[in-house]
Design a protein around this nucleic acid. Structure first.
Lengths: 335, 335
DNA sequence: CTGAAAGCGCTAACAC
DNA sequence: GTGTTAGCGCTTTCAG
């Protein structure tokens, strides 16, 4: 069957403890013994049973990540850079997706917890006022990603969402638009911040954001295009439709643009669009989409740094890390 | 701290075995005892330690999946439906991505194996002649996804790639094209089949596929658009460029179309394109992309069925399951 | 430097 | 129906 520490110890006439120590690179083993052990491990292609190690040692060297949607480019890229950074430190990333379903999310969190991850990262799909129960009860360190829960004193890594809104608002105003609308989210924390920053930027140049110009919806990740499409139809039915729209994310912007084009509007002449997330295909769309980039890659690196601290117990007080977004201008706003 | 079986047993004055049996729903426990145990578990919100369970029981109730790229829609959707189907059977899916790097792939496979998954699913990025070493040595049941290794007698779930090529070839010939080219992959198993089916379909209507009309490349998932772009430039530089191209996947088709448009060609008038995978954004592209759909969702369900059999030990001989692809026609081939 | 003893939290097999 | 014993493969502690 499979090789165990015990087998190596028996072969070499040493104790399992000695082998275990060599395995973990401890220095209190003699040079010669160490070499013999290493040699035998290599010969037998020994692979430690991580279940046993985790159970005995209280550390699994695994980190969990729960996201609302894996196919979503933002989370996919975040996960990628996070996994890479952790891998080089000897930690594995265990991925799970909630499919934007609070029940599945709760379940996935429990699963990762009972499987002993050392740190748990969560981009929750729950309203910012109702954190997942399991999160509040566990003693495992948790890092909230992208969406936070104001009432929970937990680590957070995400985008400066106020600035996302500001960047979008400033850009749309800057290209001369005045009837500016927003298709936004609801519930999760970034939505409120983005709207606030957006309003602030518009107010700064004397533009107001009337209530009917703010359309909010709930699910934005998986079928965001349909969400955006319908929200846009609502805006188009107004007596005075907008001449620019800031959408919560790129997928909803794509759907919204589709609705506008079907209504015979020209982009950006009649109406401009800006999204958020800067997705992989933004360049190849019918109308290349201006977007606010969240540097998901750098976010992943930052999260990894924090995870490393937490996984060694040297966490300290909860920290909040926010990255500044960048505007990527394409033809949906500027010819 | 955290609640253990032992705590419940102590509280109730029964043995841990009794509690364990109730936990696992075994029927050889008296009604009254069972209820007391259940009640106490609920009160204490007991969550079994899955590490310990897996170590002691030899089953982890976890299934591993290694894909070349998570952001890739095909694998993302496959993973989603697989996870859903497994979840409803009490199994968890543990996801890992190799980023199309054979070394990372090998490492991720090892990781999942040493962490005790009951079944391992792998969509390998390695050439079909050189399977990952760890795969050939393990005793854990393995299911190959999308790409198989002819020499390895293992379970396989994937698309009928011969038919992918045929569908594409027949369609392009059917819309009257004659100078038909292929931008294809290399190494992994689907590439050869797709090319073969493609050739066969063309031959059936008297069209030959000259060597210079077949451009092959290696990495197609992550930066497939750039790959397609450059491959297309090669085709455009021929004395007689093609009037239709079948691309290995949608991402490469997007890049290829970009190159064609930059060269001043009109799609589909001057040149038609067909991809494979039917990605989420295909409808919203500058030119909506005709694509061969692989029904990733159904593939996930099929894989889940097979995994369930394998995870209970009732595997039997390796099986090969192939799903038939469907053609989705859009404006990149037909106005 | 090395190893014996104890135990992580759970389950398998068999007694009672 | 219920409990006892033994052990999964590893790490920890501490004695030598």
């Amino acid at each position: 069957m499979v090789v165990r520490l015990k087998d190596i110890a028996r072969d070499l006439g040493v104790s399992t403890v000695t082998v275990s120590k060599v395995l973990r690179g401890r220095t209190d083993i003699g040079q010669k013994t160490r070499e013999r052990v290493l040699k035998r491990m290599d010969e037998l292609n020994y692979q430690p049973n991580m279940l046993a190690r985790a159970l005995a040692g209280g550390r699994s060297y695994a980190v969990g990540l729960v996201v609302p949607d894996l196919v979503h480019p933002f989370f996919g890229e975040f996960a990628r850079s996070l996994a890479g950074a952790l891998r080089s430190e000897g930690l594995v990333l265990v991925l799970a997706s909630s499919e934007e379903d609070p029940d599945i999310e709760e379940q996935e969190i429990q699963t990762l917890l009972t499987r002993g991850v050392d740190v748990l990262l969560v981009a929750s799909c729950r309203p910012s006022t109702h954190p997942p129960k399991a999160l509040t009860e566990t003693t495992t360190p948790v890092v909230l990603i992208d969406r936070h829960f104001p009432k929970l004193p937990m680590d957070f890594v995400g985008t400066n969402d106020l600035m996302v809104g500001e960047v979008a608002g400033r850009h749309l105003a800057g290209i001369g638009r005045r009837r500016i609308a927003h298709i936004g989210g609801r519930g999760i924390s970034p939505t409120a911040d983005r709207l606030k920053g957006f309003q602030r930027a518009l107010a700064a140049v004397g533009i107001e954001l009337p209530k009917e110009y703010v359309v909010t919806r709930e699910r934005f990740e998986e079928s965001g295009d349909a969400t955006g499409y319908h929200a846009m139809q609502e805006l188009l039915s107004l007596r005075e439709p907008p001449d620019a729209v800031f959408c919560y994310n790129d997928l909803s912007a794509i759907g919204a643009m589709d609705a506008a084009m079907q209504a015979g509007l020209r982009i950006p002449h009649d109406i401009a669009f800006i999204g958020c997330g800067n997705l992989r295909y933004a360049d190849y769309l019918r109308v290349p989409l201006t977007s606010v980039d969240q540097s998901s890659h750098r976010l992943g690196d930052m999260a990894a740094k924090r995870v490393l601290e937490l996984s060694t117990g040297a966490g300290g007080a909860p920290q909040t890390l926010r990255l500044e977004p960048r505007l990527i201008v394409r033809k949906s706003t500027v010819v």
